[in-house]
Computed example of a mutant assay.
Amino acid sequence: MSAPFSLPPLPYADNALEPLISANTLSFHYGKHHKAYVDNLNKLVEGKDLAQLSLEDIIKKSAGDAALVGVFNNAAQIWNHTFYWNSLKPNGGGKPTGAIAAAIDKDLGGYDKFKADFANAAVTQFGSGWAWLVSDAGVLKIVKTGNAEVPFTKGQKPLLTIDVWEHAYYLDYQNLRAKYVETLIDKLLNWDFANANFAG
């Protein structure tokens, strides 16, 4: 997909995550913030060679380029948000099954340690950003990124993410980022999505 980019549809109804994440939050987070990144990127690449590239290639080409920081921020935030929506599902969370479960046991010290470390990464990301479960050359790692940064620009393959920008949770959880993070891990993480990414 190249420009003009469009807002990808949510993988569920806007009320599907209630009461844990409200339709009101999604109306702002998806309908306003995510849409704004799409609109901004289309304006920034219009008439430029970048408009011929896929979203991932725009991110890779603009990463670390001071002249393209606006392009990177908007392109990466489109990608990050689409990935985040797919990292969640109704009645998700809890312990994973399949290959990802075995890899968490092998690489991250088991589910309980993963849960604590993933939550800690999300809670301690200073300011805006993301916590990620990634595969780094086949080894699972937990990383965090600031603002729009995305792990695949560093050769890491994202498997799951938690958005810790305030607009992701403030309407529902106010300043209680830790409660929001705990809720996602326990009740909303989409382990089917993580397994598909891990296998892909």
Rank of each mutant, 00 (worst) to 15 (best):
L53V: 08
N190K: 01
S62E: 01
E56L: 05
G146D: 10
A23Y: 06
D136G: 12
F152C: 09
A148S: 15
I100R: 01
N175P: 07
P90Y: 10
F126G: 15
N175H: 09
N42C: 04
I58E: 00
L108H: 10
V69Y: 10
K43F: 03
K89L: 07
A119K: 14
K35T: 09
E166M: 12
K32M: 13
L53W: 03
G31D: 11
L68V: 11
D186N: 15
N147S: 12
A66F: 08
I78W: 05
E149A: 11
M1C: 05
T97C: 04
K113H: 11
W85E: 00
N175W: 06
V71R: 00
T97Q: 13
G47K: 05
D107T: 14
F28K: 04
Q52L: 10
G31T: 11
V139W: 12
K113R: 14
A102I: 07
L160T: 00
G64P: 10
G98A: 13
W132A: 07
F126Y: 12
L68R: 05
L88G: 00
G155E: 08
S54Y: 04
Y169C: 10
A148Y: 04
I59P: 02
G93C: 03
D136L: 11
A36Q: 08
M1A: 06
F198P: 00
A3Y: 05
T82Y: 09
K106R: 15
G31Q: 03
D112S: 15
F5T: 02
I100Y: 01
Q125K: 14
V71H: 01
N73D: 14
D107E: 11
N24G: 10
R177P: 02
A75Y: 01
L68D: 04
T124Y: 14
P9D: 06
I59D: 00
P11W: 12
K141A: 12
M1K: 06
G138V: 13
F72V: 09
Y12M: 08
E182F: 04
